[in-house]
């Protein structure tokens, strides 16, 4: 099968799953569970955004939550000022995208090494965390929106139909929006990888020097991948703001670390893997949270340790390998051609 055919198949399967989720879950789940599912979809989108930056661009961004939080905060602030959630989406995405582009420009054009890139991005999200926490009090407001310090912005406006701010979306509709965003971004990632830009980005991840010696502008491509990832994280922040409300914890170390764990456990270089790991680990954590006297973080740490030790490449690549071994004849069409030469 060609690359395009495979991507088309993946997108079709994802579309079927998205339609099924949209049709079945709002009727089947209690309201609380449905809002929870919406949060998970937002987080899965955040996981996808890092899976793209890391998997397609080889960029280990430890602070993907910076753009997640900025997207959320920008949405809340713009929404309160405009009195219209729909109008706030574009400013929110713009803020997250520009922030990613600016940070990426400094890192890539400053030729920062990979390890420092992790340190810098983590530091940025922690600075934003500290800053957001210290915005309590009347002097910290942007227009009509009080930033609220530690408490965040509880009056974060919900989305509404464009041009109709009097009619906010119901939780069921917000869930549908979340699933559509997640599916849309997944399809977009798959399509971007088919373009020349996407192929070059993957090649740069494989060997930066070779790509550069072939005449490809490595820094511009990495900046592009990083910015797209930041924009997706910002969209995740908007969705998140619609099911909870924005608060400094969106920037926190706990979230920043979790995103990395989801991608690691799911498998760097895959996209379904990190999303699935995100949902599974959140389900696990919320179940562990109901056990009295048990810290869910302990479980998360245990899962990370087990994954790194037992399946270092992540769950999805390992599962694909196992499947491949079960059907060797169909997975390795190139083998017979090579054999006579040796």
């Amino acid at each position: 099968m060609t690359d395009a055919g495979r991507a088309g198949l993946h997108i079709a399967v994802a579309a079927a799953l998205a339609v099924a989720a949209v049709l079945v879950l709002p009727g089947a789940l209690e309201l609380f569970a449905l809002i929870n599912a919406t949060v998970w979809a937002a987080m899965a989108l955040l996981a996808l955004s890092l899976a793209f930056a890391w998997g397609a661009g080889g960029i280990l961004c430890f602070g993907q939550t910076a753009f997640f939080g900025l997207g959320g905060y920008a949405y809340a602030v713009a929404g309160i000022n405009f009195g219209d959630g729909a109008l706030a989406v574009l400013p929110a995405l713009t803020v997250a995208t520009l922030a990613a582009a600016a940070l990426g420009w400094v890192m890539f054009y400053g030729r920062v090494g990979d390890v420092y890139m992790g340190v810098i991005t983590l530091t940025v999200t922690l600075i934003l965390f500290k800053f957001a926490n210290s915005t309590a009090g009347e002097q910290w407001r942007i227009g009509a929106a009080a930033l609220g310090g530690f408490n965040g912005i509880p009056q974060t406006p919900p989305l509404n139909w464009p041009g109709d701010p009097a009619n906010p979306l119901t939780p069921e509709q917000v869930f549908v929006v979340a699933v559509l965003c997640l599916f849309g971004c997944y399809a977009a990632v798959k399509l971007v990888l088919l373009t020349r830009f996407g192929r070059v980005a993957v090649a740069i991840k494989e060997n930066e020097l070779r790509a550069e010696l072939l005449g490809y502008d490595v820094r511009a491509h990495r900046l592009g991948v990083f910015t797209i990832g930041g924009a997706m994280a910002g969209l995740a922040g908007v969705v998140f703001a619609n099911c909870v409300f924005v608060s400094p914890s969106m920037f926190s170390l706990a979230y920043a670390g979790q995103v990395v764990i989801w991608v690691l456990v799911g498998g760097v270089g895959t996209y379904v893997g990190p999303m699935a790991a995100c949902v599974a680990l959140q389900a696990l954590a919320s179940w562990a949270g109901t056990v009295p006297g048990f810290d869910p973080n302990l479980l998360l740490g245990g899962v990370l340790l087990a994954a790194v030790l037992a399946v270092p490449r992540g769950l999805l690549p390992t599962a694909q390998d196992l499947l491949g071994r079960l059907r060797p004849s169909r997975r390795r069409p190139a083998e017979p051609k090579i054999a006579p030469a040796e």
């Binding site: 993957v202 090649a203 494989e206 060997n207 020097l209 070779r210 790509a211 010696l213």
Partner: peptide, 11 residues
């Protein structure tokens, strides 16, 4: 062409 071959190993 570099001294140590630079190739896209995963492709």
């Amino acid at each position: 062409k570099t001294q140590v071959p630079a190739l896209f190993d995963g492709l």
